[in-house]
C-alpha cells in the first residue's frame, strides 16, 4: 500500500514539474475546437448540432497526444525495470499510474469545458450530458489506451502508430457518448447510453491491467 501511494505521489510530483508539457494537449484540445466554427460557419444551430461530437473527437485526439507520456520516462530511465523487480505486482502499479495520468489530464479538461460549451452554444442539458460522458468515458480511453502505449513504448516515434492502433478501438465509445449528448439536446433520457459506457469502463478496468503489464514486459525484452 505504501508502495502504491508513493507511485501516486511520485507521478503527481513529476507531472507538476513538467506542467508546461501537461498544458500542451489541453491547448491542442482548445485549438481544434476553435477550428470548427471557423471551418463550418458561426451559425449557432449548426454548432449546437455538431458541438458534442466535436468536443468528443477533440478530447480523444488530445488524450492520445498526452498518452505517450504515460510510460515513456519510466521506460527510458529504467524506473520501469525497478517496478518489475519490486515486491508489488506490476499490474497494481500500472493501475495507479494510469489513474494518476488520467487525473492529471482530465481535471484541466473539465475546468476548461464550460468555456467550450459556450463556444459551441451547448444547452445546459447537453453540457451536463457532456460532463457525464467525459467522466465515464475518459478513464476508458486511458485504460485501453495504456495497452497501446505499453506496446509502443520501446519504439522510436511510436506516436502516429499509437493513434493508428487506438482510434478504431474508441469508435463505440464515441458513438455512445455523442448519442447521449444528442439525446440530451432533444430533452430525451440518455441513461441507457451512460449505462453502456459505464459497462465498457468496468469491463476495461477489469481486463486491461493484465494486458498492460504483459505488454510492458514484451517491450522490455
Amino acid at each position: 500500500m505504501v508502495a502504491l501511494k508513493s507511485v501516486f505521489l511520485k507521478d503527481l510530483a513529476l507531472a507538476y514539474r513538467q506542467r508546461a508539457e501537461l498544458m500542451q494537449p489541453l491547448m491542442f484540445f482548445v485549438l481544434v475546437i476553435t477550428l470548427f466554427p471557423l471551418a463550418i460557419g458561426p451559425s449557432p444551430e449548426t454548432l449546437q448540432r455538431i458541438g458534442g461530437g466535436v468536443i468528443w473527437v477533440a478530447a480523444i485526439l488530445s488524450l492520445l497526444l498526452g498518452m505517450e507520456r504515460m510510460f515513456r520516462d519510466d521506460f527510458a530511465d529504467g524506473s520501469l525495470e525497478q517496478y518489475m523487480l519490486s515486491p508489488t505486482p506490476l499490474y497494481m502499479i500500472v493501475v495507479v499510474k494510469v489513474f494518476t495520468h488520467w487525473l492529471m489530464h482530465i481535471v484541466p479538461l473539465f475546468l476548461i469545458s464550460p468555456l467550450l460549451a459556450l463556444f459551441l452554444h451547448l444547452t445546459f442539458d447537453m453540457y451536463v450530458a457532456l460532463m457525464l460522458t467525459l467522466l465515464l468515458g475518459t478513464p476508458l480511453i486511458s485504460f485501453v489506451g495504456a495497452i497501446g502505449v505499453a506496446l509502443t513504448v520501446g519504439l522510436h516515434r511510436g506516436g502516429v502508430l499509437l493513434a493508428l492502433l487506438l482510434i478504431p478501438i474508441f469508435i463505440p465509445l464515441l458513438i455512445f457518448a455523442t448519442s447521449a449528448i444528442e439525446s440530451a439536446s432533444m430533452l430525451l433520457p440518455y441513461h441507457p447510453q451512460l449505462a453502456i459506457i459505464a459497462a465498457l469502463l468496468l469491463f476495461s478496468v477489469a481486463l486491461s491491467p493484465m494486458a498492460i503489464a504483459y505488454s510492458l514486459k514484451v517491450s522490455q525484452n
Binding site: 520516462d73 529504467g78 525495470e81 523487480l85 515486491p87
Partner: peptide, 17 residues
C-alpha cells in the same frame, strides 16, 4: 525478486526528482 538487487544500464532514477 524479494532478495534481489539489479543494477543495469538504465539507472532507474527519475531525472526530475
Amino acid at each position: 525478486s524479494q532478495g534481489l538487487l539489479y543494477f543495469g544500464h538504465k539507472q532507474g532514477i527519475s531525472q526530475l526528482l
